[in-house]
Amino acid sequence: MSLDLDALCPRLAGAPLFAPLSLAIAPGTVASVMGPSGVGKSTLIDAIAGHLAPAFTLTGSVTLNGADILARPAESRRVGVVFQDAVLFPHLSVGDNLAFGLSRAVKGRAARRATVEAALEQAGLSGFAARDPASLSGGQRARAALMRSLLADPAALLLDEPFSRLDTALRDEIRAFTFARIRARAIPALMVSHDPADAAAARGPTIRLIPIGDIT
């Protein structure tokens, strides 16, 4: 039960973006990948989640619970992604955003609704099911997006600068919430960030991406 990157290296027109990355992430741990902006942190997330733009190629491997996932399409990898700005769908209510994420394994209208309600409650969003996502505050959006990702029952979670848009005051709270949920789920998580405080709070292995120009 772990997420393993082995010499993973996205390339643009054959040229590597950063030095090949190897990393083993155990369940319930949050690994941090740090690096200056522009080094390709988001590209790393895209590569693992399966959203790499066609211009890129990829060498190395990604194994999730022992199976190589790189050949699978994004939707079949069971890799959840929490984006920087939450990306709640504007045409759906908060509850329906979560229902959209909720795995098909939960069957029956009442059971699904109850699961969504329970997830909202855990996120401190009780009674928010019918709300327009646009009316949520930044912290509420972040929590809703995380719950939506977890409801899809991912086997690993990727966090793309998940706290950088939040106020400093809010950041600690959302960080604690996010990491607690990941540990409770006992899934491996990988966070990319440029904020050392994020890595410190994650308390997992920390890797600094080396821009390719600095290798030699």
Binding site: V79, V81, S149
Partner: peptide, 16 residues
Amino acid sequence: PLTRHLATARALGYPP
């Protein structure tokens, strides 16, 4: 915001 919405939906397990 097409790219982000599609990426989000696929990360949640939906084919294109």
